[in-house]
Amino acid sequence: MPVSPNGLEVLVRRYRGRRRALIQVLQDIHDRYRWLPPEALERVAEALGVPLVQVYGVATFYKSFSLTPRGRHVCTVCLGTACHVRGGAAVLEEFERRLGIAAGRTTSDGRHTLERVNCLGACALAPLVVVDGHYHGQMTPVKVGAVLAAAAKDEAA
Protein backbone atom coordinates (compact mmCIF):
# COMPACT_ATOMS: atom_id res chain seq x y z
CA MET A 1 0.00 0.00 0.00
CA PRO A 2 1.50 3.35 -0.98
CA VAL A 3 2.16 5.79 1.84
CA SER A 4 0.21 9.02 1.56
CA PRO A 5 0.32 12.02 3.86
CA ASN A 6 -3.42 11.75 4.33
CA GLY A 7 -3.32 8.07 5.14
CA LEU A 8 -0.64 8.73 7.75
CA GLU A 9 -2.56 11.63 9.19
CA VAL A 10 -5.57 9.40 9.83
CA LEU A 11 -3.40 6.90 11.70
CA VAL A 12 -1.49 9.44 13.73
CA ARG A 13 -4.24 11.92 14.54
CA ARG A 14 -5.75 10.27 17.56
CA TYR A 15 -2.38 9.96 19.29
CA ARG A 16 -1.31 13.57 18.87
CA GLY A 17 0.78 14.81 21.80
CA ARG A 18 0.60 11.44 23.59
CA ARG A 19 4.23 10.45 24.06
CA ARG A 20 3.31 7.20 25.73
CA ALA A 21 1.36 6.03 22.72
CA LEU A 22 4.52 5.60 20.68
CA ILE A 23 4.36 1.81 20.40
CA GLN A 24 0.64 1.81 19.67
CA VAL A 25 0.87 4.27 16.83
CA LEU A 26 3.80 2.39 15.33
CA GLN A 27 1.77 -0.81 15.51
CA ASP A 28 -1.15 0.84 13.73
CA ILE A 29 1.11 2.07 10.98
CA HIS A 30 2.81 -1.30 10.72
CA ASP A 31 -0.53 -3.11 10.47
CA ARG A 32 -1.51 -0.91 7.60
CA TYR A 33 1.67 -0.75 5.53
CA ARG A 34 3.43 -3.91 6.77
CA TRP A 35 6.50 -1.78 7.45
CA LEU A 36 7.44 1.58 8.94
CA PRO A 37 8.28 4.00 6.15
CA PRO A 38 10.73 6.79 7.08
CA GLU A 39 8.17 9.51 6.45
CA ALA A 40 5.85 7.80 8.90
CA LEU A 41 8.52 7.85 11.61
CA GLU A 42 9.08 11.55 11.04
CA ARG A 43 5.38 12.23 11.20
CA VAL A 44 5.04 10.24 14.43
CA ALA A 45 7.94 12.09 16.06
CA GLU A 46 6.34 15.40 15.16
CA ALA A 47 2.81 14.50 16.20
CA LEU A 48 3.71 12.90 19.51
CA GLY A 49 6.43 15.40 20.35
CA VAL A 50 9.23 12.90 20.86
CA PRO A 51 12.70 13.07 19.31
CA LEU A 52 13.00 11.24 16.01
CA VAL A 53 15.84 9.11 17.39
CA GLN A 54 13.55 7.87 20.12
CA VAL A 55 11.06 6.71 17.50
CA TYR A 56 13.92 4.95 15.70
CA GLY A 57 15.06 3.48 18.99
CA VAL A 58 11.68 1.85 19.58
CA ALA A 59 11.27 0.87 15.93
CA THR A 60 14.62 -0.91 15.87
CA PHE A 61 14.24 -2.46 19.31
CA TYR A 62 11.20 -4.58 18.55
CA LYS A 63 11.52 -7.40 16.06
CA SER A 64 7.89 -7.00 15.10
CA PHE A 65 8.64 -3.68 13.41
CA SER A 66 10.28 -3.61 10.02
CA LEU A 67 12.08 -0.62 8.59
CA THR A 68 12.09 -2.06 5.09
CA PRO A 69 9.04 -2.97 3.01
CA ARG A 70 7.90 -6.52 3.70
CA GLY A 71 6.57 -9.10 1.31
CA ARG A 72 2.94 -10.13 1.08
CA HIS A 73 3.73 -13.27 3.08
CA VAL A 74 5.75 -12.99 6.25
CA CYS A 75 7.41 -16.20 7.44
CA THR A 76 8.76 -16.00 10.94
CA VAL A 77 10.97 -18.80 12.17
CA CYS A 78 11.66 -19.04 15.87
CA LEU A 79 15.19 -19.70 17.01
CA GLY A 80 14.62 -19.16 20.71
CA THR A 81 16.19 -21.61 23.09
CA ALA A 82 13.46 -24.24 22.89
CA CYS A 83 13.03 -24.00 19.14
CA HIS A 84 16.75 -23.96 18.64
CA VAL A 85 17.38 -27.19 20.50
CA ARG A 86 14.50 -28.89 18.69
CA GLY A 87 15.82 -28.15 15.24
CA GLY A 88 14.64 -24.63 14.39
CA ALA A 89 17.88 -23.92 12.55
CA ALA A 90 17.27 -26.68 10.01
CA VAL A 91 13.75 -25.33 9.42
CA LEU A 92 15.11 -21.85 8.85
CA GLU A 93 17.69 -23.21 6.43
CA GLU A 94 14.98 -24.93 4.45
CA PHE A 95 13.00 -21.67 4.20
CA GLU A 96 16.14 -19.89 3.06
CA ARG A 97 16.80 -22.55 0.42
CA ARG A 98 13.28 -22.59 -0.95
CA LEU A 99 12.83 -18.83 -1.00
CA GLY A 100 16.38 -18.13 -2.10
CA ILE A 101 16.88 -15.38 0.50
CA ALA A 102 18.64 -15.05 3.84
CA ALA A 103 16.73 -14.42 7.05
CA GLY A 104 15.77 -10.77 7.33
CA ARG A 105 15.31 -10.41 3.55
CA THR A 106 12.38 -10.10 1.16
CA THR A 107 12.22 -11.88 -2.21
CA SER A 108 12.71 -9.63 -5.20
CA ASP A 109 9.15 -10.27 -6.41
CA GLY A 110 7.91 -8.90 -3.10
CA ARG A 111 6.04 -12.09 -2.23
CA HIS A 112 7.91 -13.40 0.79
CA THR A 113 9.74 -11.98 3.75
CA LEU A 114 11.71 -14.34 5.96
CA GLU A 115 12.40 -13.46 9.56
CA ARG A 116 13.92 -15.10 12.58
CA VAL A 117 12.92 -14.29 16.13
CA ASN A 118 13.98 -15.35 19.57
CA CYS A 119 11.03 -17.04 21.24
CA LEU A 120 7.41 -16.47 20.37
CA GLY A 121 6.24 -17.55 23.78
CA ALA A 122 4.79 -20.88 22.66
CA CYS A 123 7.76 -23.08 23.35
CA ALA A 124 5.61 -26.19 23.80
CA LEU A 125 5.04 -26.12 20.04
CA ALA A 126 8.76 -25.94 19.25
CA PRO A 127 10.09 -25.69 16.66
CA LEU A 128 7.64 -23.01 15.72
CA VAL A 129 6.98 -21.10 12.51
CA VAL A 130 4.40 -18.38 11.93
CA VAL A 131 3.29 -17.65 8.40
CA ASP A 132 0.90 -14.77 7.88
CA GLY A 133 -0.29 -15.06 11.44
CA HIS A 134 -0.89 -18.82 11.32
CA TYR A 135 1.11 -20.86 13.83
CA HIS A 136 2.74 -24.06 12.62
CA GLY A 137 4.08 -26.09 15.53
CA GLN A 138 6.42 -29.07 15.54
CA MET A 139 7.86 -27.97 12.24
CA THR A 140 10.34 -30.00 10.26
CA PRO A 141 12.20 -29.06 7.09
CA VAL A 142 9.99 -31.52 5.21
CA LYS A 143 6.82 -29.59 6.11
CA VAL A 144 8.14 -26.27 4.81
CA GLY A 145 6.95 -26.87 1.23
CA ALA A 146 3.40 -27.55 2.34
CA VAL A 147 3.31 -24.51 4.61
CA LEU A 148 4.43 -22.25 1.77
CA ALA A 149 1.95 -23.81 -0.63
CA ALA A 150 -0.89 -23.19 1.83
CA ALA A 151 0.05 -19.54 2.00
CA ALA A 152 0.11 -19.31 -1.78
CA LYS A 153 -3.36 -20.84 -1.94
CA ASP A 154 -4.71 -18.28 0.52
CA GLU A 155 -3.49 -15.62 -1.83
CA ALA A 156 -5.14 -17.19 -4.85
CA ALA A 157 -8.42 -17.59 -3.02
Partner: peptide, 8 residues
Protein backbone atom coordinates in the same frame (compact mmCIF):
# COMPACT_ATOMS: atom_id res chain seq x y z
CA UNK B 1 17.18 15.00 21.29
CA UNK B 2 19.83 14.27 18.66
CA UNK B 3 21.16 10.99 20.07
CA UNK B 4 19.33 7.76 20.75
CA UNK B 5 19.97 4.07 21.36
CA UNK B 6 19.08 1.80 18.44
CA UNK B 7 18.65 -1.96 18.16
CA UNK B 8 18.83 -4.27 21.15
Amino acid sequence: GELGVFER
